[in-house]
């Protein structure tokens, strides 16, 4: 069981959270300007690294706020969690 530190509520069990995928993917400002390949890259392609991963989590059964986390995808150790934009 992962113990995840919500930046607002502190450490809680994994079951209180839902996973939000890779962090830092921004919706293109002008989708019409993109080629199909660029749009596909935004929509479907993921970094999916073996090792350090910046990702989003939601404290779904708590304060319901989104936050960022840096987690190792092999050891599953969470190096840090942070308020988005901080």
């Amino acid at each position: 069981m992962l113990l995840i530190k919500c930046p607002w509520c502190g450490e809680r069990a994994e079951t209180e959270f839902s996973y939000g995928g890779e962090a830092g993917i921004t919706r293109p400002r002008d989708p019409d300007a993109l080629s199909d390949a660029e749009w596909a890259d935004y929509l479907f392609n993921r970094t999916n690294p073996r090792g350090a991963h910046e990702e989003l989590w939601n404290h779904a059964h708590g304060c319901r706020r989104w936050f960022g986390a840096e987690r190792d995808t092999v050891s599953y150790v969470i190096a840090r969690t942070y308020k988005l934009g901080s």
Binding site: G21, A40, D41, N45, R46, T47, N48, P49, R50, T73
Partner: peptide, 18 residues
């Protein structure tokens, strides 16, 4: 499960998550 790791060796990105 290691497809993305091998893809990155060839400079490719895949629509796959492990």
């Amino acid at each position: 499960g290691n497809a993305s790791v091998l893809a990155s060796m060839a400079g490719l990105r895949l629509p796959v998550e492990s």
